[in-house]
Design a protein around this nucleic acid. Structure first.
Lengths: 212, 212
DNA sequence: GTCTATACCGTGATAGAC
DNA sequence: GTCTATCACGGTATAGAC
């Protein structure tokens, strides 16, 4: 278990800072300072500021997609030859994210907050999210199509949109729910968030997609 | 129907630009240029950049809260002495936002995108959203408590959290769903978004809050 | 009171020297 | 890999025109 390289420290610092303040709210000097390296080293390793931003965003995407796809394949295998239920599919979409909580590495938390920033950004949202996550999302939509026979694409995609919004607001950990609920709910409690989100979203999908 | 004042043009330009690029992604010079005024005029009217940001965010909040509260009072009056249903309450929360679509003023659209930016921001989210919208949200939660007897606060607030996330992602109009659905859904189509969101969210509330 | 022109000075990203 | 220089751009203050 060796020290992370300077290159990794730059990525970690950039991840945390971009997640909190957004792309434009952070300077390369802040990132370098946080990482304990010289300003120019970021340029040396990653080129332009935008390239560093993309590198941060892409770093954990593959691992995230892999664990989610694996979770989906698992429930599909378990339920075969029948299709998995809506709950099982949503569960497979969300539960792998809990690893980010138990894991000692706080970088995952920052990464999820960064996804929240990007997903809800008029400017970044479309291109960055689609490029990294649409293939995986289509896998889950396909699975949901199996669990909800006769559902129209339009209904499925709007339902996924609702799921995506609820999920990424959770990622952002704004602590607004802490205030609103007078401490009864904590935005740091992903476990509670998912426990409530899974039945909520599953019921929503059923209601909208099983109108027949 | 006279021309808007320069002061209003600054607010309009700031609203549009902040919504698209966030607080740090916009310069006062861009705002002034977009508004067709001198840079210093923004400082003259609003003081610091942060004060302008707050002025933009607060400008339409009261009108928005008022129309939503009015819609809530209407369904409460219509259903009295019984409580309005979950659907009616969610409807009252969402439908007033459609005005922003029919309305010729594109500023409302930008304003909603700005709410999306703020609500999902780790940095801005808590304070700015709570200050302007928590009182209204508590009114709606109280109404939902009537429609869902026995629901715990914890369940109600997490359900509202899911609603809030789905709604603000819609506000952001990122066009991601356009790509994902291959054009079958359009993020500019608020009407379709709400048509799918209302039954989705209402079913979610019932599922989570009526477990008994 | 409303508005413009301009100046100030810190800070930013980036390139090039070492 | 690191240090330094460059040069444009940022927010903001001020002076004065209308």
């Amino acid at each position: 278990m060796s020290q992370p390289t300077k290159r990794d420290r730059i990525l970690d610092a950039a991840e945390a800072l971009f997640a909190e303040r957004g792309y434009d709210g952070v300077t390369l000097r802040q990132i370098a300072s946080e990482a304990g390296v010289d300003v120019a080293l970021a340029s040396y390793h990653f080129g332009k500021k935008l390239d560093l931003f993309n590198a941060v965003f892409e770093r954990r995407a593959e691992a995230l997609n892999r664990s989610r796809l694996e979770a989906l394949r698992n429930v599909q295998r378990e339920s075969a030859p029948a299709f998995p239920t809506v709950e099982q599919i949503i569960e497979a979409f969300l539960r792998p994210l809990e690893l980010t909580q138990e894991n000692a590495d706080p970088g995952w938390r920052h990464y999820l907050a960064l996804i929240a920033y990007v997903n809800n950004s008029t400017y970044w949202g479309k291109q960055m999210m689609s490029k990294l996550f649409d293939d995986l999302v289509q896998e889950f939509i396909a699975a949901l199509r199996g669990a909800l026979p006769g559902a129209s694409d339009e209904n499925l995609y709007w339902c996924y949109h609702n799921l995506s919004g609820a999920l990424t607001l959770t990622f952002a950990q704004t602590e607004r729910i802490d205030t609103l609920s007078k401490g009864k709910c904590l935005s740091s409690d992903f476990q509670a968030a998912y426990d409530h989100m899974i039945p909520f979203v599953a019921a929503g999908f059923r209601q909208v997609c099983q109108k027949n």
